[in-house]
Design a protein around this nucleic acid. Sequence first.
DNA 1: TTGACATATTCCGATACGGGTATATGTTGA
DNA 2: TCAACATATACCCGTATCGGAATATGTCAA
Lengths: 109, 109
Amino acid sequence: MSRVATTADAFNAVGEPSRRDILNYLVLQERAVGEIVSTLRLGQPSVSKHLRVLRDVGLVHVRRDGRRMMYRTNAEAIKPLHEWTGTFERYWKQQLHRIKDRAESETGK
Amino acid sequence: MSRVATTADAFNAVGEPSRRDILNYLVLQERAVGEIVSTLRLGQPSVSKHLRVLRDVGLVHVRRDGRRMMYRTNAEAIKPLHEWTGTFERYWKQQLHRIKDRAESETGK
DNA sequence: TTGACATATTCCGATACGGGTATATGTTGA
DNA sequence: TCAACATATACCCGTATCGGAATATGTCAA
């Protein structure tokens, strides 16, 4: 037994930089594959494969328009990631306060 | 040329489920490696390796305490991920409104 | 100094991944 | 029906990754 799944979850899907680029691009507006290819300067098969991964985890939606496939980001699928990272918010705020407090007590010395 | 870096960035580091578990655990309190191993039921070398990845991207801090190494989550390193996912917030809110509006107009019909 | 303890590193095998090339599939318009 | 177009899939290569076993490194206590 070796590596577990991976592409089967949104956290992992988003770990790939090109896929984040694609999500950033597709959230603004629905786009055809060819537009993604030329805008992001990636190979067409590469883009199709990234889209397949994103689709499998629900991060994008597709719609056929004639012979083109129109993709768009499904922002809701990103919500869980935002929520998970958000559970750490109180901790980084604490850390900032500690740093700030220490700085103030030092200047006040 | 093949796969790019990966372990060299926080997004990817967090893509691994065990590493998320470790971060969740270490944010509550500083812990020794052995505690992580027994609490999360993972192999010791495996944990050490995950910790090395997390450390390299700044997601955890270490401190030596005698012969033990005490790790804790560096919440601040998670902030960029929270911010990136946050850029999608307005879009999922829009989607929710659209869904809500449609539901209301349908019941009102 | 030595043995026990705690952690890190190395090595291995199986597999997943990403990019590229070639090819298959599906759709349109003539 | 057929050629052009748009996208998806299959395949290959080189590499990354994960887990586990074995081993190395570092630290303490006697």
